[in-house]
Design a protein around this nucleic acid. Structure first.
Length: 425
DNA sequence: TCTGGGGTCCTAGGACCC
DNA sequence: TCTGGGGTCCTAGGACCC
């Protein structure tokens, strides 16, 4: 059996741990740039605010009533780490899946002790971190997801729900479960399934797997098996190095100036290089992309991307920045107001396994060594002294691309000064 | 004035080869 | 009027997740 442990309204719960006044009130956490609502307390959901609702489209009444906070990822990331440390006390097999959910393997636990074990887990997480979680237990991940939803939705379960593969309860649940509420079925597949008369999870479970595969894909076929209780989805090892690294941001305000894009691309590439080195990889190519605001249909639209191959695998900011600069120059067009840009590092290889070129002379080996030491120093300074202590080129004041985030709470658990600010008011 | 960011996997289709 | 077959590799784009 496998348990899915998922923080209730995770970002909101993190905020509430440090500001109990938020308890019982409609609270929302906003995306970057204070753009959309990405986490909602029960009270805010009850007011009809949808996941992803744009802030500027919320009715004024709701904006007055609700507490809407900028996102504070330093806080959420740290709280997530703490929750996972508690989970590790309850099973040797914890798979971090996302910032607010983890799968916990329960292989070998006696069936009759499972529920009590999960209740203890849930209470301990609450007591040690302050975060309320729901626990769904089932033979497969897809069923564990269903169980987890039930655990949170139906008060009778008190936060812990076990589902088997074949019992009458499971059947009744799946018969009423809209297929689009399954993990892995969203709007597009939902529409196609509906055309074929499949509306509920039970109908999908009863469909012929080969037929499903031929009409959809191997992904949907796996879903059928998972619903039948045969585990068919394995997670990627979340510790494994990423296959590509993306850094992008929307701008605080639209801009047509090349200079703004240049600064933003430089900033993003600096961050991407940091991530690249942290996971011990080298990139062989970089991509740069820009776009106007697709929602402003009255404005001229433009989006473009370009891939620039690097002379050789590299993790040196100087090389990455040079390539990104060339890429940007190639796709920038005058006369548009840009809303977003970003960079992607592609074709990553492990820096240890990277085969040295047979043609490399000793001069190049020396240069590679210098580059590695320079980057290591850069990363160390930025880690120890704070982000952006050292970087390539300084952004101008009041640049158009700087993020808006006017409602961020203090980083209670990772910055002493900000914790003091709370205590002293 | 204001609509997030960072990932993965899969498939179709084109280029190319013999 | 007739115009092969089979394979690989790569990329773009769709779909989905949180």
């Amino acid at each position: 059996m496998i348990a899915l442990v998922d923080g209730n309204n995770f970002y909101v719960s993190c905020e509430r741990v440090f500001d109990p006044r938020l308890e019982g009130r409609p609270v929302g956490v906003l995306s970057n740039n204070d753009g959309c609502v990405v986490a909602r307390s029960q009270e805010l959901k009850a007011l009809g605010v949808a996941m992803g609702a744009p802030l500027h489209l919320l009715p004024p009444g709701i904006r007055r009533q609700a507490v809407l906070l900028s996102s504070n990822y330093a806080l959420y990331g740290d709280m997530s780490r703490r929750v996972n440390l508690v989970l590790a006390e309850f099973s040797p097999d914890v798979e971090f899946y996302s910032i607010d959910e983890s799968f916990v393997g329960l292989e070998g636990f006696p069936e009759h002790e499972l529920e009590a074990h999960c209740r203890r887990l849930r209470e301990t997480v609450r007591r040690w971190t302050g975060i309320p979680v729901g626990v769904g237990v089932a033979p497969t991940r897809v069923l564990a997801k269903v169980a987890n939803h039930l655990a949170k939705r139906e008060p009778a379960f008190e936060g812990v729900c076990l589902l088997d593969a074949d019992g009458p309860v499971t059947r009744r649940v799946l018969e009423r479960w809209p297929v689009t509420e399954l993990w892995g079925v969203a709007r597009r597949s939902g529409e196609r399934l509906a055309l074929m008369g499949i509306d509920t999870a039970w109908q999908l479970r009863e469909a012929n797997p080969q037929w499903v595969r031929s009409r959809f894909s191997v992904v949907m076929e796996r879903l059928v098996w998972e619903l039948r209780g045969r585990a068919s989805i394995t997670l990627d090892d979340m510790d494994a190095p990423r296959q590509r690294i993306l850094v992008s941001r929307s701008f605080g305000r639209l801009t047509g100036e090349f200079r703004d894009l240049q600064e933003a691309v430089r900033q993003h590439m600096g961050r991407a290089g940091e991530k690249l080195r942290r996971q011990g990889s080298l990139a062989r190519a970089v991509q740069v992309f820009v776009r106007t605001n697709p929602f402003q249909t009255s404005e001229p639209q433009y989006r473009n991307a370009v891939v620039v191959a690097l002379p050789g695998p590299s993790a040196d900011n100087r090389v990455l920045l040079e390539a990104a600069g060339r890429g940007l120059a190639a796709i920038y067009r005058k006369g548009y107001r840009y809303q977003k840009c970003g960079v992607m590092l592609l074709d990553l290889v492990d820096s240890q396994c990277h085969q040295l070129s047979l043609l490399e002379g000793s001069g190049q080996a020396v240069e590679r060594d210098r580059s590695q030491r320079l980057m290591a120093t850069l990363d160390r300074l930025n880690r120890d002294m704070g982000r952006d202590t050292v970087r390539f080129g300084l952004p101008r004041k009041d640049n158009a691309w700087a993020l808006r985030c006017q409602r961020r709470t203090p980083r209670y658990t990772t910055h002493w000064q900000e914790l003091m600010r709370v205590r002293t008011g």
